[in-house]
């Protein structure tokens, strides 16, 4: 019985501990923000792994979907709950912010999932490098659209989300952002794992390995592709929403190709088609970025260099397509990884 729930228990302990430490201010705000970005990165890398690793497509515009999520949940949140010079007085009483917050993030995710159709529909007819371009172009298009809407700040960005965080803190005095980031990270991994381990989701892997055989063996490949792209971009949207509220400020420039490249690196660092690899590499990558921060510009020489060297010696990434349970079989007693 204890074994069956061991993962739930350990997750609850870790989550509770972080919240407690943050509440007591044992961890500095800086460490807290690093931990939160870690959560965002975990969502980004696992969700891109769904498309690039499990489905075998090459999407290099994941930042665009993150952007959609960030803007939709920020705009909606500020419109409903905060005073702002664009939208005027809040529509609803800010004291409801706490209850509406997960919905705001989810709505951002849904909007990003719909934007995912921009890539999903062309994927019926084309794949490989041509689809890679479509993802790239989508990223540019999304950012360009936002830059051209002056009312929401255009390329200067949009702010006001801090008011919602403060409103949540007023309702119940807890560090709400870490809590939400933690919960949404767990939710996304949980959803991914359930999807990919079901017979339905195994269709995704079948498409990766032999799309023709999948279609002829009764897998509705177009439907699976649509769902997979939507789930993946939807999660990127959730990550984007969280990202926007952590910073309290969004700017289309933060979701450009460089962001997408960063996520790509995390996926390939962890290993294509390995969920635990993606989580692990997101954590390592976030820490690495922070450790090398004092190097400033040189950081962006050291990190690519490290990656190139890693690729030379371990071209399949940290985990290859294995899961933690394949490397440490004892873990399987506690948790089914596949």
């Amino acid at each position: 019985m204890l074994r069956r729930y061991s993962v739930h228990l350990s997750l609850a302990t870790v989550g509770g501990l972080i919240v407690y430490l943050a509440h007591q201010e044992y961890i500095s705000l800086y460490i807290m923000s690093v931990l939160m970005f870690m959560g965002v990165n975990i969502i980004m890398s696992t969700s891109l792994n769904l498309v690039n690793g499990y489905m075998g497509e090459f999407s290099c515009g994941h930042g665009g979907f993150m952007c959609v999520g960030a803007y939709v949940s920020s705009l909606l949140g500020v419109w409903l709950f905060a005073g702002d010079k664009v939208f005027g007085a809040p529509l609803l009483n800010p004291k409801y912010t706490l209850y509406a917050f997960p919905l705001l993030i989810l709505v951002g995710g849904i909007a990003a999932a719909l934007a995912g159709l921009l890539v999903a529909i062309p994927s019926y007819k084309t794949r490989g490098d041509y689809l890679a371009i479509i993802t790239l172009a989508s990223n540019y298009i999304i950012i360009s659209v936002i830059e051209n809407i002056g009312a929401i700040g255009g390329s200067r960005g949009f702010m006001g989300m801090k008011q919602l965080i403060n409103a949540m803190g007023k309702s119940v005095d807890l560090p709400w952002m870490p809590i939400w980031v933690f919960l949404f990270t767990v939710f996304c991994i949980w959803l991914m794992r359930r999807y990919i381990s079901s017979t339905f989701g195994k269709g995704v892997i079948a498409i990766c390995q032999d799309e023709v055989a999948a279609e002829i063996m009764s897998v509705n490949t177009n439907k699976i592709k649509t769902i997979t792209f939507m789930v993946s971009s939807g999660m990127a949207g959730i990550a984007g929403g969280l990202f926007a509220y952590i910073l309290g400020y969004v700017n289309p420039g933060s979701f450009n190709i460089l962001k997408s490249t960063e996520v790509l690196v995390m996926v390939y660092l962890g290993g294509m088609g390995s969920l635990s690899g993606s989580v692990l590499s997101a954590i390592l990558f976030t820490i690495l970025l922070e450790l090398l921060r004092p190097l400033q510009i040189v950081k962006w020489i050291v990190i690519p260099l490290l990656l190139i060297i890693l690729m030379q010696f371990r071209p399949e990434g940290i985990m290859g397509n294995r899961e933690l349970g394949d490397i440490f079989p004892k873990l399987k007693k506690f948790y089914r990884f596949k």
Partner: peptide, 29 residues
């Protein structure tokens, strides 16, 4: 070296991306 190891095509693409980043930032530095 990656090609000779028979690495997946996409890993070579990532390496290329990284080389681009190095060129940019080495220049900047």
């Amino acid at each position: 070296p990656l090609r000779n190891k028979g690495a997946h095509r996409l890993y070579v693409v990532i390496t290329a991306l990284m080389c681009g980043l190095i060129l940019e930032h080495a220049n900047l530095a």
